[in-house]
Design a protein around this nucleic acid. Structure first.
Lengths: 81, 81
DNA sequence: CGGGAATATCTAATTTTCGGATATTATCCG
DNA sequence: CGGATAATATCCGAAAATTAGATATTCCCG
């Protein structure tokens, strides 16, 4: 469970994604299916092992159902990168 | 000049970044300096050869001076991924 | 406890990214 | 125009990240 990528913002992002996915009542596998990816792809994002590119964020937002700008907002709250 | 990453959204992002940088009167080298990166880093983003991760987008927004949510908005305008 | 569903971790092959150098293109000015 | 200089694009090998896919672990509920 060793998270490799660390920055407060990156951390805020992954926590945000987990929260949104759970609120949407979706499993990692369900989100992965919508993205046509493996469950391990979603898992590695949520465990902070990979970064999320901007295009992917929007795809995740569509799959899960949230406004990607809200994610940005949440991340910006952390002034310390 | 062969762009390798292609998606309408990714394209919208890089065009947005170029536009904002120019409007801010900054060179690639100036932006790179603020990010403590090489000019080629900025160039490869603008020429579409690399993807932009979400944390980087916010850093770019700070360096150049724009609201990262505006970038997202611009990208979302392209419904076709 | 037992079993299934959900999530995390591992691995090897491939792809990206990196710093750094260099080449190309654009701009300005005499 | 010619040539200097600034700006941007491209190239390289090394290092790091991502991938698909399999497997292990954890969680939850009867």
């Amino acid at each position: 469970m060793s998270r490799t990528l660390q920055s407060t913002r990156h951390d805020a992002l992954r926590l945000f994604l987990i929260e949104k996915r759970k609120k949407a009542g979706l499993t990692q596998a369900a989100v992965a299916a919508k993205l046509k990816r493996y469950q391990s792809f979603v898992a590695s994002i949520e465990t902070g092992q990979r970064k999320v590119d901007v295009v992917q964020l929007i795809a995740l937002a569509e799959a899960i159902g949230f406004d990607p700008r809200e994610a940005i907002k949440r991340m910006m709250a952390n002034k310390d990168d």
